[in-house]
Design a protein around this nucleic acid. Structure first.
Length: 577
DNA sequence: GCCGTTTTCGGCCCGACTGTTTTCAGTCG
């Protein structure tokens, strides 16, 4: 059973308990366990094997026993007992907007509704009318929710939400009386996917701003529209996303920004610190009785609680409140000196090396490396050996003419099914930098994938493993991989692990990158650019790295060109020694 | 169910909005 599967069972138990009307804190305790297991970088089976489950945050004796039971038997007695009382199919009702545990329970007990199909039938037959708490508007809301169910499913990729947020900031900022617009929520924290978009603005008069917000062109459905808050679904990519806008007085903006940035768990910790001092923290400020201690700026709130300002990417209740947990040299985009994974027209990219170099110069980079696909990646225009050599000669000739930016020639060589590389070593030895990636055979098991990756890492000419788990967010699962073994081998051999900044990939993901760093591995952040506009996706790689707590020195492409050369040479020399 | 610088019991965040209510419950974040 995977970590995700274990987490899901605990989530379902929480939902079932909630429908039953169980104590809300007990319900939350199960959700906490689900979150902890879902975010574990280590296999939960390994934690269970060494008897350390109860040491995990939010996991006590009872939950530890349940996890063991689940891993050993594949199911849980508690879950069976709950589903004997509450139909499992009720869980799908909870995903319909405006239906929560109470309404789901009422629909089931009063009307025998057990599933979405039942609900649609009951709605069509007019059986919802007259049910306690279900007026005409509630019923209409449910009907809209049902109609919207398909396209509102799932989370939006960070890059897509980012573009929408930029557009909305501009549109809202142009409204009369609006002084400031900011994003909060998981977008500001740089999460790989965003459930909904949270926008805050400062304006002299709230209602007209909320009104204008609900009339923006992308709005598909208005969920709420009040004096200080509006909530809508907007078209984004091929789907829709919920967008919430709140109008905040300027003098408490920092408190609101902090509050709505979250995460919820981070805020709970902060509130505990406040309560311990006899204070209270809300979106209106840090207060003692009627006296406001801090509210205008986030910095003041953190400072009053005895903390440094915590970057949003770290606000996940992963130890960021501990003394010294926030490094003063947390990576920023400005720290990057180059990019080591780029494609040109020679394989499946859209631009010439000269165009890439010009774009890199505009970004202030000191170096780039051109890395075409290798011969087995025929579909991506991979280069046979002779073509690679001719391409290398062209790139070196171009590099000699390019000022201000050092241009290296490398490759993104395929790791074949048996772990061999797609070019012989003597060809790789002619190149400046080698990325090795798995593009095929992603369906193998963890042992096979790990073996292939370790074989690539063992090659003296491989300097970086590209998109190590091969996932495509919302499209393809990460391939199973023993990240611990891979990161340890990478650390030992001087091989970098990539954080692929493309917002479809973000691979390694934040928690994996954090663990890889802990194990001593060097990371490398690349956009894997195929077209010039993709260079801007570096910001998503940097957000991911910041979520991982990476410092400047942890990332290969923050180093000067000569140090990158030395990184390559060290591994090659080590192999000869 | 979890947890502990108010520690083994008694807390565990709280406000906006909506709809259906005569003062509040449910949902959501």
């Amino acid at each position: 059973m995977t970590n995700a599967e274990v987490a899901r069972v605990f989530e379902e138990i929480a939902d079932l308990l909630e429908i039953q009307g169980a104590d809300a804190f007990r319900v939350n305790a199960y959700r906490r366990v689900a979150r902890t297991v879902a975010e574990l970088t280590e296999d939960v089976r390994a934690v269970a094997a060494r008897g350390a489950l109860a040491e995990l945050p939010g996991v006590g004796k009872a939950s530890a026993q349940k996890i063991v039971e689940l891993l050993e038997t594949g199911s849980l007695a508690l879950r069976r007992e709950l589903t004997a009382e509450v139909p499992e199919s009720l869980l799908e009702l909870l995903r319909i907007p405006s239906i929560g545990p109470k309404k789901a329970a009422l629909l089931w007990r009063e009307l025998g509704v057990r599933s979405v199909a039942d609900l649609e039938a009951a709605l069509a037959a007019g059986r919802l009318a007259g049910l306690k708490g279900f007026g005409a508007k509630s019923i209409a809301q449910i009907a809209r929710g049902l109609a919207f169910r398909a396209e509102s499913a799932g989370r939006t990729r960070l890059g897509e939400a980012w573009a929408l947020a930029e557009e909305l900031r501009a549109a809202l900022g142009a409204l009369p009386g609006v002084e400031r617009v900011e994003c909060a929520g998981s977008l500001r924290r740089g999460c790989e996917t965003v459930g909904d978009l949270d926008l805050l603005c400062v304006a002299r008069d709230g209602p007209p701003v909320v009104e204008a917000f609900t009339r923006l062109p992308r709005v598909r459905m208005v969920l709420a529209s009040g004096a200080t808050k509006g909530s809508v679904r907007m078209a984004v990519a091929a789907s829709t996303i919920q967008v919430d806008l709140r109008v905040i007085p300027a003098d408490v903006f920092g408190a609101a920004w902090q509050y709505f940035t979250g995460s919820k768990e981070h805020n709970v910790r902060l509130r505990e610190l406040a309560v311990r001092r006899g204070w209270s923290l809300s979106e209106y400020g840090l207060t003692e009785g009627d006296r406001t201690i801090a509210a205008r700026n986030e910095e003041d709130i953190y400072a009053a609680l005895g903390l440094p300002w915590i970057p949003p990417e770290l606000r996940e209740d992963r130890g960021e409140l501990e003394p010294g947990a926030v490094p003063d040299d947390l990576l920023t985009e400005r720290d990057l000196r180059g990019e080591l994974h780029m494609h040109t027209r020679a394989s499946d990219g859209h631009h010439t090396v000269e165009e890439l170099a010009a774009a890199a110069r505009a970004r202030g980079y000191a170096y780039i490396c051109v890395t075409e696909h290798s011969q087995s990646s025929a579909i991506a225009g991979g280069l046979p050996v002779a073509a690679l050599r001719a391409h290398a000669a062209r790139v070196r000739a171009a590099a000699a003419q390019i000022r201000d930016v050092t241009v290296w020639i490398g490759t993104e060589v395929d790791i074949l099914a048996d772990g061999r590389l797609d070019y012989p070593d003597e060809v790789l030895a002619e190149l400046d930098f080698v990325i090795a990636s798995i593009h095929s055979g992603l369906g193998h098991d963890s042992a096979a994938n790990t073996r292939r990756t370790l074989a690539a890492i063992a090659n003296p000419y491989v300097n970086c493993i590209g998109h190590p788990t091969g996932r495509l967010i919302n499209e393809r699962e990460a391939m199973p991989l023993d990240l611990e073994a891979v990161a340890q081998a990478a650390a030992r051999t001087g091989t970098a692990l990539e954080i692929n900044a493309n917002f479809y990939r973000l691979d390694l993901k934040d928690q994996h990158a954090r663990r890889a760093r802990e194990l001593g591995a060097t990371l490398c952040i690349n956009t894997d650019t195929h077209s010039l506009d993709q260079l801007d996706q570096m910001r998503f790689g940097v957000l991911t790295a910041r979520r991982a707590g990476l410092r400047v020195g942890d990332v290969l492409n923050t180093r000067p060109a000569e140090e990158v050369r030395a990184f390559v040479e060290r591994k090659r020399r080590g192999a000869r020694a």
